[in-house]
Design a protein around this nucleic acid. Sequence first.
RNA 1: UCCCCUGUAGCUCAAUUGGUAGAGCGAGCGGCUGUUAACCGCUAGGUUCCUGGUUCGAGUCCAGGCGGGGGAGCCA
Length: 474
Amino acid sequence: MAAEIPLHSVKDVLTGRSVAPGDQVQVRGWVRTRRDSKAGLSFVQVHDGSCFDALQVVAPGELENYASTVQSLTAGCSVICEGQVAASEGKGQSVELQADRIVAVGMVEDPDTYPVPAKRHTFEYLREQAHLRVRTNTFSAIARVRHCLAQAVHRYYHEQGFYWVHTPIVTASDCEGAGEMFRVSTLDVANLPRDEAGEIDFSKDFFGRESFLTVSGQLNVESYCLALSKVYTFGPTFRAENSNTSRHLAEFWMIEPEIAFADLHDDADLAEDFLKYIFRALLEELPDDMEFFRARIDKTCVERLEAFVESSFERMEYSEAVSLLEQAVEKGTKFEFPVSWGVDLQSEHERWLTEHHVGRPIVVMNYPKDIKAFYMRLNDDERTVAAMDVLAPGIGEIIGGAQREERLDVLDRRIDEMDLDRDAYWWYRDLRKYGTVPHAGFGLGFERTIAYATGMGNVRDVIPFPRTPRSAAF
RNA sequence: UCCCCUGUAGCUCAAUUGGUAGAGCGAGCGGCUGUUAACCGCUAGGUUCCUGGUUCGAGUCCAGGCGGGGGAGCCA
């Protein structure tokens, strides 16, 4: 693999950014298809992940390994190609590579059983081939979108003066209260230590107490917020809920900003500005990939995002949402579940609001206190808390957030009302004793965001190796 | 966890009232062509998810299990 010939990505060659027709270049990648022409040449589509399109490599019959190797190339083979960049004689691409050397680095040992040949596959099948599905158009595009959005998240917060805080993955307290948790233990499950009462003795466990994988970085990040003012987390989150839906994963990534000296309206403003920023970045940076999603996955995804970044979120009080739904019922809309003030909105209600009533994302604010978490700030009406959900068409709840209860006496009252243990929250309560301030934040599900942006219908297809109940292959 | 649907060739699916397995795509070979969802021909490819039951006979009917999908709940 001598290096006299400069290596370039497929993207370099196709965009002409650092390569011009006539240049000698080397390109490395994987074969998507090969088409032979008995005029004595073959066309090999080579992709390397650098962009959506593959590079057409023209292999003349004069290559010394033409018959022995080039004509045996099939989908999935890895190759190194050297040659001259040239304007294409055919339709479908502006430039191509006129190869004078093609090295097969790794052949596909049995093309008949290669799991992802160049043909249509269902997403369900490709989930079982998660190690190879990224070689397809769809999944390589998803990988690039995921990267683009992740980079945009960090760039946005960095530019806005936020600090990225690495909250712990392992949590040794059970006070997070956001759902079922995965236990982390080094105890021998076949021989558990017991105390005198016969209970499992977790003091013998690795951390000297029960420990779990985090279900949210929020409580921890609040402590950093009350010193650094603007912070966020972006990392993996784990929920052991037995949820079997297209929008739940047992392991997913969540972005949780937290801002000090801020109320619920500041929180909603941040959510809106933030989402617009990352979607604008996606539209600008990956037009080819987004065009693919528009053409093959969801015809409306691009116009939806374009409208999203130009319009403002609909904002609505919970009470207003309930009366709208009640009016809809009076006018004949059928819901499976009844609506009345005090009950949580069902999926069908959220869908009606965001898809049917306003047709774009909507922020619902100030929910009844009895259906929300203890740390959400009690409003002056004493019956609602400063909570918000951002609902998106097709996905449902994409953001859940709140202004936090900063008053220790009210927080303690709420902890007691919900039958929780004040001592377990001692350090969280400390934050209210020592220089407390109004503050707020939210959690954005990263996979739901990607699904919304691309029109992909299942979050299992926008994370490389999905973990769901009864499924942790790969 | 609950409700509904589903499991046949590498993949996507057919198979009449229960009667002994078929197509397209993919793959291999050949033909044709600066090709590009290529096209034409030929060939290979099956423990019909598993276990048990009914029957002369089960891909088909019944029971249980396992896997997959959609919806609900929980939530992001």
